[in-house]
């Protein structure tokens, strides 16, 4: 938008991946600019999770190139560490640590990975818990919180590591309907702060409000890339059309 040469946050070029003989990703090309918000949708099993999990190396790819910031992902653990330092991830099932309090969930990585002092880490954590609007739950355990609250904690836990890019894998699809909004609101506010975001979600309201681009995946391929409004009202690809007719 503003600068002529926006830096690239994530670049996937011709990325392919197999599970045994089964090809999950086929020639994925995707470039995400800093600050850009991408929404990824598509039928179940189309490879959405696999694609974003390749970006922080929870999965390895076999062909093509993935560059995050200026680090190319290879088997080199140092590179992987570098990338993970800059990339936060929020999971469908929150994956909070049940044996730790909310505050400890948020300070564990800053203390052990970032080598912050406990006091500094707690200060940062309380700031983010404030932002996701649950500072009063800091000393409870995850099991004592509602799903929506847990997911907001998971977002805060990620933000405590000060990531430059955030990955969301269906963050609201395990939630009761009445809790979806509080999580989406948190994500919208994060987006308005300029975070680079890749979100796998079928929340159309969120996509319309926040996304710069919607990517539609099917059978391991990116089938359509479009502006959100255009994607939902006049999808181009027959498979996008079929998919939208099924979820509407």
């Amino acid at each position: 938008m503003q600068s002529a040469l926006p830096p690239i946050a994530v670049a996937l070029s011709n990325v392919s991946k197999w599970y045994g003989k089964f090809q999950v990703l086929t020639d994925i090309n995707l470039t995400v600019k800093r600050g850009e918000k991408i929404v990824i949708c598509g039928p179940s099993g189309s490879g959405k999770s696999t694609m974003i999990r390749c970006i922080n190396r929870l999965e390895g790819h076999q062909r093509g190139k993935i560059v995050v910031g200026d680090t190319e992902l290879t088997n080199d653990l140092k590179k992987v560490d570098e990338v993970r330092r800059d990339v936060g991830m929020v999971f469908q099932h929150f994956n909070l640590f049940p044996h730790l309090t909310i505050l400890q969930n948020c300070t564990l990585a800053p203390i052990w990975v970032r080598k912050m002092s406990r006091r500094d880490a707690e200060e940062v954590a309380m700031d983010y818990l404030q932002r996701v609007k649950i500072p009063e739950q800091a000393h409870k355990y995850p099991g004592q919180l509602s799903g929506g609250q847990q997911q907001r904690v998971a977002i805060a836990r990620s933000l405590c590591m000060n990531p430059k890019i955030m990955l969301f894998d269906e963050p609201t699809s395990a939630l009761d309907p009445e809790m979806v909004k509080e999580v989406l609101d948190t994500m919208v506010s994060l987006a308005s702060d300029g975070m680079t975001m890749l979100c796998v979600t079928h929340e159309m309201g969120f996509a319309r409000e926040v996304a710069d681009r919607v990517i539609f995946m099917d059978a391991g391929q990116i089938v359509e890339t479009n502006a959100p409004e255009a994607f939902f009202s006049t999808p181009q690809h027959p498979r996008s059309k079929l998919f939208l007719s099924q979820i509407l």
Binding site: N56, R57, L58, L77, D81, R84, R85, V87, G88, M89, F91, N95, L96, F97, L108, A109, W112, V113, R157, S158, M161
Partner: peptide, 9 residues
């Protein structure tokens, strides 16, 4: 996975 995503070895 959450541990890896947070940068732990």
């Amino acid at each position: 996975e959450a541990g890896y995503a947070l940068g732990f070895r």
